[in-house]
Design a binder for these strands. Structure first.
Lengths: 183, 183
DNA sequence: AGGGTATGAATGAACG
DNA sequence: CGTTCATTCATACCCT
């Protein structure tokens, strides 16, 4: 019952803790459902500095992880793609949010009400250390570091003036121009 | 961890129920709970045609809405993602429900079919007119190594499968040397 | 008191 | 690589 020819079927691992909400978690089998061990290993690899594994690396990782459950090379490939992209996205967003904090306590209610955000932002500093234990393979897959850093600096400080926040001037009611002038 | 949250705690979801631990009591800190004003503005924006705000737009919206309460960029991002997805989902369900007139498989171009619903759910037929006041992203190119790799993996997954994997690497037990010796 | 629903959040897969 | 789509998990809220 668990297994179909297509593989990928049913694994109750994920919902387990939360009460499985509908216990029959498996239901649609279509996409890879990584086991916690697989995620753990992948995360560890990522944390060790691996960001864009080469084809060979992907194959080997996939091979190893297949011990824990069904997995294909493309899953590993996608996992790294997504993880990398989302970490960046997260970092970008957090940075901006952090900047926005200062903006909106400009008025007389100087409250500094948003200091709470700063508590967990320490994660944004990516440990860019690249593993050097990876001696068996050409290291050129890590060249992307440079372009990455450059792109991060591409940070536009454009501050278009076509929209004007009048936040600072009058915050008692935010004006909220629903005519979308601010976007 | 790769937890997205910056202002909220909590985790304990899919992969690791082990690490979830306490705090699952969402009551105090958990997920973003938008105020009615925030929802109102977001809905208005959506109704005005905004479906996929750019990063800049997300930031600006978030900044504006922060007047009404705690909010982060990612909340705005998720809100639009979910709202759009669920609108589509709903429409698709309705179509399947009584969409006997057209049996075609391509459902994402539903705009020409099922004109009957326009009257009832005028929202779903909302034109895509978005106030485009900012379009300033130069498109940058990058290597198409990724898609190439992916193609490789697609081939790989249907061809060799399980056999090729454990040839070079002993698979008796995974060894799982997190010191990355195996990659 | 619990079950159903709406919805925030996450992530695998894929596109451009 | 950034962005988008589809699906699922988790939870707040409401209903009976």
């Amino acid at each position: 019952m668990d297994d179909y020819s297509t593989g990928f079927c049913i694994r109750a691992s994920r919902g387990g803790c939360g009460g499985g909400s509908g216990g029959t978690t498996g239901t649609k089998c279509g996409r890879w459902n990584p086991t916690s061990e697989q995620v753990k290993v992948l995360t560890e690899l990522f944390r060790s500095g691996l960001r864009t594994p080469s084809t060979d690396q992907i194959q080997k990782i996939s091979s190893q992880l297949s011990f824990y459950g069904k997995i294909e090379s493309k899953n590993v490939f996608y996992w790294f793609q997504n993880h990398k992209a989302r970490e960046r996205q997260k970092r970008r967003r957090v940075l901006v949010d952090e900047g926005n904090d200062i903006v909106h306590l400009n008025d007389n209610t100087t409250k500094l009400s948003s200091t709470k955000y700063f508590a967990e932002i320490n994660q944004v500093s990516e440990p860019e250390r690249v593993i050097e234990t990876l001696q068996l393979f050409p290291l050129n897959s890590f060249n992307e570091m440079d372009s990455e850093k450059l792109r991060l600096f591409r940070d536009d400080c454009k501050e278009n003036s076509k929209f004007t926040y009048n936040i600072g001037t009058e915050m008692d009611h935010p004006t909220l121009d629903l005519r979308l002038s601010f976007i």
